[in-house]
């Protein structure tokens, strides 16, 4: 990977729209982890969204217009890191396709090769978690589909979590199953979406885990939302928060 920066160099954080709006603590956790790993972190201004909602809804034109801004914003950096497999997957796997045959094709390819999901990036640079001790009970890991299948990330988050002393990592019985989020799918076909979320929630409960962590806010909000409706008392955190030791309150717990 020619673009992989070395320690001491600057990486750009792509905050992602869900983290920005719903859970800024994930962004701060990502900054801390990257700084702890020896990188300088910049958060370029003017970030909004990667364009995935429009892309998956079939609105190619708007997706491209939104995505083009990303090409501008992140052009000056050697590496871009996102606390989301879904958004990083959009940039790496779909931008080259989205811009194929346009004047921006090369810029899209360039951004694709230097964009990383957070766990993947930390693991690649042998970064260590900030959390020194975990006494919160067994932790289950949820692979987001985009992280697992678009980016082929499997070992990185597990290896990072195992480095936290005291943390017992448990596997779900069907780790490859989608949680039912799917972006707009969750509101277009909510009955199927919640049914899939129920299956996932039950899988987590049956695993004996008391905490669930994953790489994507979309999945986590979906699973956490379904768990609280089902009355399951399982803490849901973004993996960045756990790794950074920012485990205050889980997703859905900070209810007003």
């Amino acid at each position: 990977m020619s673009h992989a920066p070395h320690k001491g160099e600057t990486v750009a954080l792509f905050v992602t729209c869900l983290v920005d709006a719903m859970r800024p603590s994930v962004g701060f956790a990502a900054v801390r982890l990257l700084e702890h790993a020896g990188f300088c972190v910049e958060v370029p201004e003017g970030q909004t969204c990667c364009g995935q909602p429009a892309f998956n809804a079939g609105d190619e034109e708007d997706a491209r217009d939104v995505a083009r801004r990303m090409l501008d914003i992140f052009a000056p950096f050697d590496a871009v890191v996102a606390p989301s497999g879904s958004c990083a997957g959009m940039v790496r796997r779909h931008y080259p396709e989205l811009f194929a045959g346009t004047p921006d094709e090369e810029r899209a390819k360039a951004l694709a090769t230097k964009t990383f999901e957070l766990c993947e990036f930390l693991h690649r640079h042998d970064a260590s978690p900030l959390l020194r001790k975990w006494e919160g009970g067994p932790v289950a890991w949820h692979d987001s589909c985009s992280s697992r299948r678009e980016l082929n990330i499997h070992e990185a988050p597990r290896a990072l979590l195992r480095r936290i002393p005291g943390l017992e990592l448990v596997e779900l019985s069907d780790p490859e199953a989608c949680c039912g989020f799917g972006g707009l799918f969750s509101v277009k076909l909510p009955e199927i979406s919640t049914r899939m979320a129920t299956d996932k929630a039950q899988d987590v409960r049956n695993s004996g885990a008391t905490t669930l962590v994953g790489p994507d806010m979309g999945c986590l909000m979906n699973i956490a939302g379904r768990m609280s409706r089902l009355g399951m008392n399982i803490r849901v955190l973004h993996v960045a928060e756990l790794l950074a030791g920012m485990t205050g309150s889980g997703i859905g717990e900070n209810a007003a």
């Binding site: 983290v19 920005d20 859970r23 509101v187 956490a224 409706r229």
Partner: peptide, 24 residues
């Protein structure tokens, strides 16, 4: 609309409040 579809069978986890952009 939209929220109703989401919230029929699951909660909407509340946002923390301020945005990352503003806090940063």
């Amino acid at each position: 609309p939209g929220l109703s579809a989401w919230m029929a069978e699951r909660e909407l986890p509340p946002p923390q409040g301020r945005t990352f952009t503003a806090m940063w």
